Amino acid sequence: MSEQNQGVRGYYQLTQTIKTALLEDININTVTTGDITDVNLNKQDIFPLGHIIINNVIDTEQTLKFNITILACDIVNLSKEPTVDRFTGNNDVQDILNTQLAVLNKLIQRLRMGNLFTDMYQLDSAPSLEPFYDRFENQLAGWSATMDILIYNDIWVCN
């Protein structure tokens, strides 16, 4: 963060706060940010992975309302064994979906009433979560959570 932006709440502070919160979870090893097409392009990523996308920001007099999408995902492992149970198949997609939903649920609860809420990172509405399967080039599965987060707008123009 540049010296001139220190102390200003905004993009840097929100993305760093979400990154830190995700990395505190034992089920996330890497956090990235950027466009959806940037997910999993770095061959050095250590999975499971969280990815932060800022969709838009509404600037009001007292708050910045960030609409963000957070992906929580892992690489699908396929077993070479024959499929015995058609419900679970021969991969770990159900395990990934269960674990990564828990990662996002924990983050959401911290925004709803936990330490992030107390630190003034607050949900403005109920998040929407959607599962995905075999996405991106490494066959990732996980969840996409879209939510609105309010933070205090500390830019004032009063003289």
Rank of each mutant, 00 (worst) to 15 (best):
I18F: 06
D38N: 15
D154V: 06
L64N: 01
A145C: 05
T30V: 08
Q139G: 08
I149P: 03
I54S: 10
F47L: 08
R135L: 09
L71A: 08
Q13A: 12
N5R: 12
S144H: 05
W156V: 13
T88W: 07
T33D: 15
T69S: 09
E3M: 08
D38I: 05
I46V: 14
T99Y: 01
A72T: 11
V157Y: 15
N159V: 10
N40T: 13
E61N: 15
P48T: 06
E3I: 04
I75T: 06
I149Y: 05
L123T: 02
G10E: 03
T118W: 00
N91E: 06
V31E: 12
S144Q: 11
T37V: 14
L111T: 09
T99Q: 04
D134Y: 14
T83H: 08
K106S: 00
A126W: 10
D85Q: 02
I151R: 08
C73V: 05
T15P: 09
G10I: 02
L97F: 07
K19P: 06
R9Y: 14
T60L: 07
Q4M: 09
A141K: 06
T63C: 05
S125L: 00
R86A: 11
T37I: 14
I52F: 14
Y121I: 04
P82L: 05
N29Q: 13
I26F: 05
E24P: 03
Q122R: 15
K80H: 15
E137G: 10
D119N: 04
L107Y: 03
Y12V: 01
T60R: 02
Q122K: 12
D134G: 12
I18D: 02
D85L: 01
N98I: 09
T99A: 01
Q109V: 00
Q62W: 05
K19Q: 13
P131S: 07
V93D: 12
N29H: 11
L104M: 03
M1R: 04
K80W: 13
M113G: 11
D95S: 01
D25R: 07
G34W: 10
G10L: 04
P82V: 02
V39F: 15
Q44D: 14
Q122A: 11
Q16R: 13
M113F: 11
N55K: 14
A72R: 11
T83W: 09
E3Y: 09
I54Q: 06
L22D: 10
W156Y: 14
D38S: 15
L41R: 15
I28T: 05
I96H: 03
D119I: 00
W143K: 03
L104H: 03
Y121R: 04
V93N: 12
K43I: 09
N90T: 00
L107N: 02
Q109F: 02
V57I: 15
T69R: 04
I52G: 12
T30A: 06
A72S: 15
I149R: 03
N98H: 11
W156M: 11
D148S: 01
D95M: 00
K19E: 15
F136K: 13
E61W: 13
T83S: 11
N77S: 12
S79Q: 14
R112C: 01
T37N: 15
I26V: 07
D119Y: 00
